[in-house]
C-alpha cells in the first residue's frame, strides 16, 4: 500500500487540489459578484446586505467562510507554485524555436495571472476590509455611519465604494485586476473539469464554451461597478 503522503505529492493529486479549490473560489466569486451588483439597487440594499453578512449566525458565519477561503487560497497557491517549479525543471533546455498549436495566452500565463491575482487580493483586502490603504474612504471611520430602514446604525459601505471609485487611479487598478481574473479563469474553468476527469462527449464541448463565457461574465460584472461610478452613472 502506498503511503498517502506519496499520493498527496503526486502531480495529479496536486492538480486535483488546484482544480477543486479553484472551482470553490470561482463559486465564491459568483456569490461575491451578485452581492456587488446590489450597488446598482442603491444605498439601502448594499448596506443592509453587508450588515447581514457581518452579523449572520451571531457573526460566526463570516469567520467560517473567511477560514475556508484562506485555506483554499493556501492550497491553491502552494499547489500552483509546486507544480510550476516541477514543470520548469522538467525542461532544463528550451527549444530555439517553438510554434504552439493549441495553447493560448491565458493557458501559458496561468502562474503570472495567478500571482498578480494574489497581489490584487491583498491590495483589495487592505483597501476595503482592513482600511489600511485609501483610509480616507474607509467605511469603518467615525462619521460615516448609515442608518438602515429598521434604524440600525451600520458602516456606510456604499459611500466607501463610491468615494473610492471616483478616484480614477483606484477604478483603473480594479478594472485591470478584473481583466487579470478574466484571463486566469478563461483557461481555468474548463481546465478544472478536465483535471477532474470529465470525459462525457456531450459535456466536454459545452464546458469548453461555458468556461470562457463565464470568465467574461465575471470580469465584466465586477468591472461594471468601478466603471459605472467613474462614469458618474452611480454616485
Amino acid at each position: 500500500m502506498k503511503a498517502f503522503g506519496e499520493i498527496w505529492r503526486s502531480n495529479i493529486f496536486q492538480k486535483w487540489l488546484m482544480a477543486l479549490t479553484g472551482l470553490l473560489l470561482v463559486g465564491f466569486l459568483l456569490g461575491h459578484l451578485s452581492g456587488n451588483l446590489l450597488v446598482f439597487l442603491g444605498k439601502e440594499d448594499i448596506n443592509s446586505y453587508a450588515h447581514g453578512l457581518r452579523t449572520m449566525g451571531h457573526g460566526m458565519v463570516i469567520w467560517i467562510v473567511r477560514l475556508g477561503l484562506l485555506s483554499m487560497f493556501v492550497l491553491h497557491v502552494t499547489a500552483a507554485i509546486t507544480l510550476s517549479r516541477r514543470n520548469r525543471a522538467a525542461r532544463p533546455q528550451s527549444y530555439a524555436k517553438v510554434t504552439p498549436r493549441k495553447s493560448t495566452v491565458a493557458s501559458r500565463t496561468m502562474l503570472y495571472s495567478g500571482l498578480l491575482l494574489l497581489s490584487y487580493v491583498l491590495y483589495h483586502l487592505a483597501h476595503f476590509t482592513w482600511g489600511a490603504v485609501h483610509a480616507g474612504n474607509y467605511a469603518g471611520q467615525i462619521g460615516w455611519e448609515y442608518t438602515l430602514a429598521d434604524g440600525t446604525l451600520v458602516p456606510d459601505v456604499y459611500r466607501m465604494v463610491v468615494a473610492s471609485f471616483q478616484v480614477p487611479l483606484i477604478a483603473v487598478l480594479y478594472v485591470l485586476s478584473m481583466v487579470m481574473v478574466g484571463l486566469h479563469l478563461n483557461h481555468a474553468i474548463a481546465s478544472a473539469f478536465q483535471t477532474m476527469g470529465v470525459t462525457n462527449q456531450r459535456l466536454v464541448p459545452l464546458i469548453r464554451r461555458i468556461g470562457p463565457a463565464l470568465s467574461f461574465i465575471v470580469a465584466a460584472g465586477f468591472s461594471a461597478v468601478p466603471l459605472a461610478i467613474l462614469a458618474g452613472v452611480v454616485k
Partner: peptide, 27 residues
C-alpha cells in the same frame, strides 16, 4: 512535468490520441 491542459500534446500526436484519455486517467 504536470499537465496544465494546454492540449499541445493531442495536436502534435501523429496518431491523434485524444486528451480525453488524460481526463480518464485523472479519474
Amino acid at each position: 512535468g504536470a499537465c496544465t491542459n494546454h492540449y499541445e500534446c493531442e495536436a502534435a500526436c501523429p496518431k491523434g490520441i485524444s486528451a480525453e484519455f488524460i481526463a480518464q486517467m485523472n479519474k
